[in-house]
């Protein structure tokens, strides 16, 4: 019973953090797509700012959005498929 309560709590926490990460990722998407001209200017500058901007954004977005999606799928699809897990070879 206590285990089930902890599980429910962790699912709730995971979903909450997924929502927070999704919002943060959405803010980055908004900033990028609403400042296209400035962004393209930096990306075309051929200075170290271009890879810095690119790689930092990519890492941050993939972390935020990726973690959010991972958390959501972990507590929905993955949990549902738990009884079907295989490990052969």
């Amino acid at each position: 019973m206590a285990n089930l309560a902890t599980k429910k709590q962790s699912k709730k926490t995971a979903m909450l953090s997924a929502a927070v990460y999704l919002i943060m990722a959405a803010i980055i998407y908004y900033v990028v797509f609403s400042h296209t001209d400035k962004l393209v200017e930096v990306l075309k500058s051929k200075t170290y700012f271009a890879p810095l901007l690119c790689m930092t954004t990519v890492v941050v977005v993939s972390f935020l959005y990726g973690t959010a999606i991972s958390n959501i799928l972990k507590h929905t699809l993955q949990e549902r498929l738990k009884s079907q897990e295989l490990r052969e070879e």
């Binding site: 797509f33 962004l39 271009a50 890879p51 901007l53 690119c54 993939s62």
Partner: peptide
């Protein structure tokens, strides 16, 4: 990612849409 962006060839908008 480093080399292509140093040459001004990375369109970050395309990359971000692919991520979705």
């Amino acid at each position: 990612a480093f080399l292509y962006s140093m040459h001004g060839l990375v369109d970050l908008r395309i990359t971000l849409l692919l991520y979705v």
